[in-house]
């Protein structure tokens, strides 16, 4: 793959230029410009609005290191990202397996649609419907009490599990999709070959299927982990008072406190931490994939 790309770029860069140009232009305008504006902001003492005085400073970055609150929140956000990613693997991978290897034809299409559905619904609507389900006297509470002979009180609203549930629901389709694509590419005869060589279903899963679907698992994990660490909507609405995370603090700076410089600095620290984590994980992941 890598050497194919290399050959492609050596031979085909010149004719490909007109094709690449729009993409580069778009990247410059859509990502580079706003990002550099944010870098600029993060180095200011105050917003240059209404004629306020401002100067360059590293104080916004220093704030992260001087107050332990931020690093504590960042750690809990990283933990949240890890947990949500793990749950997405636990739920998404088997679903992808069933879709790719067990179901055929129409039933596959139907289930696929159900998996994709969260993608197509509005994020806020999705979160508020979870609120309806999870709160005391909500759908889950009522339904369980109607079925169970004893009285239980389900009030998951404004709790850590509620945040997890909401986030997993939003992000599990990524895992299903990336894993589905790699699982589908695994020839059934490989599974049969493994079994004919004396491996049980479980051994075939661990030694053949999971290693071969590693690229999908890794892509899914990266697609989920990064945004979840910076997420703020689900923590805020479903977590209530327990839902203060790194992402919600950044959001506060932009939306309610109007301390854009601090918000921007905190985002860049998050970006740096995520990049460091991915860089550290890269060799391990490359060997696995």
């Amino acid at each position: 793959m890598a050497d194919q790309l290399a050959i492609g770029s050596r031979r085909g860069l010149k004719p490909a230029l007109p094709l690449l140009l729009p993409a580069y232009l778009w990247l410059t305008v859509a990502i580079f410009l706003p990002l550099s504006a944010m870098v600029f902001f993060s180095l200011m003492t105050d917003l240059p609005v209404a004629g306020k005085e401002w100067s360059f400073t590293l104080g916004n970055y220093a704030a992260f290191f001087s107050q332990s609150l931020y690093s504590t929140l960042l750690l809990s956000s990283l933990r949240l990202g890890l947990e949500v990613t793990l749950w997405c693997v636990v739920i998404g991978y088997p679903a992808a397996y069933v879709l790719a290897k067990v179901l055929k034809g129409r039933s596959r299409e139907a289930i696929f649609l159900l998996v994709i559905l969260p993608f197509w619904s509005n994020g806020l609507v999705r979160i508020f419907s979870w609120a309806m389900v999870l709160r005391e006297g909500g759908i889950l509470d009522t339904a369980l009490n109607a079925v169970l002979p004893f009285k239980i009180n389900i009030d998951l609203m404004y709790s850590y599990p509620a945040v997890i549930i909401g986030l997993v629901h939003s992000y599990v389709p990524y895992m299903v999709l990336t894993c589905y694509l790699t699982l589908q590419a695994i020839d059934d005869s490989l599974i049969e070959a493994g079994r004919s060589l004396g491996a049980s279903r479980r051994q075939v899963l661990w030694r053949v299927i999971i290693p071969l679907s590693m690229p999908g698992l890794i892509a899914g994990a990266a697609l989920i982990f990064v945004p979840v660490v910076g997420s703020f909507m689900e923590p805020r609405i479903l977590g209530g008072r327990t839902g203060t995370f790194y992402g919600t603090v950044i959001e506060d700076q932009f939306v309610s406190v109007f301390n854009w410089p601090l918000g921007a600095a905190l985002s860049f620290i998050l970006l740096a931490v995520v990049l460091i984590i991915l860089a550290l994980a890269a060799p391990v992941l490359r060997r696995a994939a």
Binding site: A193, R195, L212
Partner: peptide, 20 residues
């Protein structure tokens, strides 16, 4: 007797070698 207990060796038309 399931496949893995039959003690057979199978060669597939597409070879089915584990690519990883």
């Amino acid at each position: 007797v399931p496949v893995e207990k039959r003690r057979i060796g199978m060669v597939f038309q597409n070879y089915a070698l584990f690519p990883n």
